[in-house]
Design a protein around this nucleic acid. Structure first.
Lengths: 329, 329
DNA sequence: CTGAAAGCGCTAACAC
DNA sequence: GTGTTAGCGCTTTCAG
């Protein structure tokens, strides 16, 4: 595969490389016939601009880095879809990296992505903490963080207020006198769980009670299902809230095992759901986090950051819509 | 953000840029103390090599392009995970692109990916046909195609023999005298469905019968579920085979709706499954396509192609493992 | 063991 | 309108 360069095209069309550059960049000063000649040459030679060289010369790559956790691709997948859809509109390329719990340091990953000179990066990761975000800020590159609120000039965050979502729902139950509420730990989503518990605590506090329903899965149990099957033998709940739908399914299965009827004996709600929630019986009531939008909005705002368009907020809250289904009364 | 270049490091360390280049590339001829000086300078300045410039100079980017369909990220997600895991080992970066049915031409997508001078590309897409693969071959770039057998020197295919899988299973039923078998169309996976039907046809033919169980979902129905709920009122099956688990779930739900008991009245099998299959009741028997391996093996073989290591086959068949679960007797 | 210099492919002033 | 030329940041002979 011999590569054809801008020089080859120039020679073929009998013009200088500057002119070729002009036509491939749509600079509108080239005479029509010259342009035609150049285009013919490009076609004939099958010339494709080398994005690398362009990137070097322009100091921009029209590529953004995307960092997501490796697991749970159904929800993440939606985010990616949303992001890619708008990336395509603005002609951005995506460099994808995944973080593996424990194994890979988030900052390392961002580091390798930055080496390839992306124009900006989008991060979705539940393991973010203050130390990491501080490191990220130092990279001083346009960045948007999904589902984690951060405040920094170079960083925009796009998120849903999970704390509030849980707070509102829990309050609703407390008002009705239902106060045996459990929140299931999700090992992969510390941050989200923390927010959920915070929301619950706030609701309980306002009701003059104290929240004590955090269901930590002991490490000897490999799955929530295994633990809950045991746990439900001794404990009963009015409502169980899980982060992802898969956990809600596990909860429901564990309940069935103990002859606990959903939703009559116990109700179940999850925060994020996937298409599988529509195929399962009973379907789980959820907050329907706008996964696709999370990705799409993030990319959209990143394009604005990249062109120094400041007509946007640095903390963008997307709303959720609580959707009751068959797992609640 | 002022960028620090190799020149800055050279000046700081009082050496030439050639020397700096040597140390960052681990060329082992630099005297220890010079090396130390350079490393100190790198550290002090926070220098990060510009992968773009390296790519230009080296004519290789250590980046591969990955093209996948936009939907169904759970199975695709596993492929991506597998691919990324081995990509990380070999220090490859990933440029991700998705194909959208109808909207984006696969060849266009590959084209934009090639412009960024990736060293190779991996494609997973069910809409591939002979015309497209022919175009792909012309790009003359190391390429591996997942789940679609192609024969070309520059292309390696990594796949599971779905035709055989279905053939074997169907034969098994036919032998037992069960010959009301349906295969559900999957609009997003033409190719896979075609293979499934081929397998069924072969089995029927060998049994001296003719297969007529291809369940085409009429276009006025938006979901398989909607159609099957109707369809099962009039038709009955011994076995229904779906491509993905989500379709199997739909089938099961539609069956329940018609008081058809799974697996007693009708059995259900799917080809690919996701983690959701373990959370659903009844769990669906499946062929357990090795999604993760599909990605991992593809990346592994691509690295071999890229270093002209020819110790591999150009058609790599991965095996499936038929896993009976609760949806079959 | 280290430095000088050419070249990777392209863009963007600056001339003409 | 079009051509010339100096970078963009790095690698790699080739000298020394």
């Amino acid at each position: 595969m011999k590569r054809v360069t801008i020089y080859d095209v120039a020679r073929e069309a009998n013009v200088s490389l500057a002119t070729v550059s002009r036509v491939i960049n749509g600079v509108d000063v080239v005479r029509a016939d010259t342009r035609a000649r150049v285009e013919a040459a490009i076609e004939k030679l099958g010339y494709k601009p080398n994005a690398l060289a362009q990137g070097l010369a322009l100091q921009k790559t029209t590529t953004i880095g995307l960092v997501v956790p490796e697991a749970s691709f159904s929800f993440t997948g939606n985010i990616i879809n949303g992001l890619l859809d708008v990336a395509r509109i603005y002609k951005y390329n995506i460099m994808l990296q995944t973080t593996t719990e424990g194994i890979s340091d988030i900052t390392d990953i961002v580091e390798t992505i930055i080496k390839s000179r992306v124009d900006g990066v989008v991060i979705y990761n539940d393991q973010l903490n203050d130390k990491i975000t501080k490191d990220l800020i130092e990279y001083n590159i346009p960045m948007v963080v999904i589902n984690h609120k951060v405040s920094a000039p170079q960083i925009t965050s796009v998120y849903v207020d999970i704390e509030k979502a849980v707070y509102e729902r829990v309050t609703d139950y407390l008002v009705r006198g239902l106060d045996k509420i459990g929140i299931i730990q999700d090992r992969k989503n510390n941050q989200a769980c923390k927010l959920m518990v915070q929301g619950a605590k706030r609701a309980y506090k306002e009701a003059g009670k104290e929240f004590d329903g955090y269901l930590m899965i002991p490490s000897e149990y490999h799955t929530s299902y295994a633990y809950l099957s045991e746990h439900f033998k001794e404990n009963q709940y009015d409502l169980v809230i899980a982060y992802r739908d898969s956990q809600a399914f596990a909860t429901i299965n564990a309940a069935k095992e103990n002859n606990i009827n959903i939703p009559d004996d116990m109700e179940v709600i999850c925060v994020i759901d996937t298409k599988y929630n529509s195929m399962v019986r009973p379907q789980v009531s959820s907050f329907s986090l706008p996964s696709y939008d999370l990705g799409a909005v993030s990319m959209r705002v990143l394009t604005k950051m990249l062109k120094n368009d400041n007509t946007f907020d640095h903390e963008i809250e997307l709303s959720y819509l609580y959707t009751p289904r068959k797992s609640t009364k």
